[in-house]
Amino acid sequence: MFPNYVNICYICSMVITEISTGKKHKVEIVPVENSDFKTLGKDRYFFDWKTEKEYEVFKLQIIGSTEALGLVSMERIPSEWRVHIRLLTVSVENKGKGKKYDGIAGNLMAFTAKIAVRDYAEFACLSLRPKTEIAQHYIEKYNMTPTGLTLSIMVPEILELINSYDHD
């Protein structure tokens, strides 16, 4: 009955924090256009994003800016009521101790969680398959559950993830 929107974008309800000032900035997460891929080099975004062109790729940017501060590619798997994150990154200046903004990766996680819940409601599942050594981080920070090599988050925890990054 309702259309599945290609240009999903959650504006206004998501913010990131500028670490040096504590100032909060409203962000939007928008689809990466074909023409954007040439600006998404490995030097700033750590992966070869061109290989993700056949999947859904989104970028997080401060409202009013077009600079990608973070990227995520994902695959919707309707037969399993699941959204699987394939790649997720923040830009080079937002990595590690000296990073400029906080909350980029978390907002990208919450964004994909929203897509899962929007599409599959109580059956929604967000999954990822991290390398073994970093799995614990995702289990602790996002309350994910391991099954084999895959981590997943479902109702009710997935709703908590969305709420923790939803701000008016």
Binding site: H84, V92, G96, Y138
Partner: peptide, 10 residues
Amino acid sequence: EDVEFGLDSR
């Protein structure tokens, strides 16, 4: 520190 900047989940 590194996990948040690069998750290759394929």
